[in-house]
Amino acid sequence: MKKMHPVAIRIMHWTNAIAMVIMIMSGWKIYNDEVIFGFLHFPDAITLGPWAQHGLQWHFFGMWVLGLNGLAYLVYGLATGRFRRLLLPISPREVIREALAALSFRLQHADLTHYNAVQKTLYVGVILVIILQVISGLAIWKPVQFSFLTALFYDFQGARLAHFFGMTAICLFMVVHVALALLVPKTLLAMVTGGPRVDEDPAARVPSAHASNM
């Protein structure tokens, strides 16, 4: 019996968290040098690096951590069946029902090892947004060498805009994710200690038999 979050997942999760904070805060510094929206400047206190060039240095360091760690995570998730086991299937009807329940604080969190439909949607969604973020990032970095990627976003400014909205989506996810983890602290604890032990064979799983055994 393995823990719900094997040590590899925990390392990758926290590495990603650090890399993401570096990318967002240095990205804000870079954004401030040529703002997209005149009304929006990020305060220096929440940006990384004293000047734009230092923001760029951090961003082009963080991209390696985020990219390589993310790649390892995707390979791990696909190869071990973790994605299939935890994130699929997602039923639209369940998503709506559970989203309404969550908004009225009636969503049960008895079984940590089984994600509800809202969680599944958010996790799959943020993974896809991060992948898109890497693609728009490459389109901005190499608009000539990877001009086919830049063309996906219409042009260079389109890629910048997509990169900005991707950041916004990730920030919104982080707000919800962190808030819920603090509301249900045992989920946060599970990402540190590994959480309850689970059966690795999905066929042997009987959802009702998996009450939290923390």
Partner: peptide, 13 residues
Amino acid sequence: FWEKQGFNWFSGL
């Protein structure tokens, strides 16, 4: 000039 300030040297597109 700009690399001395910390910008990337290659800066290729």
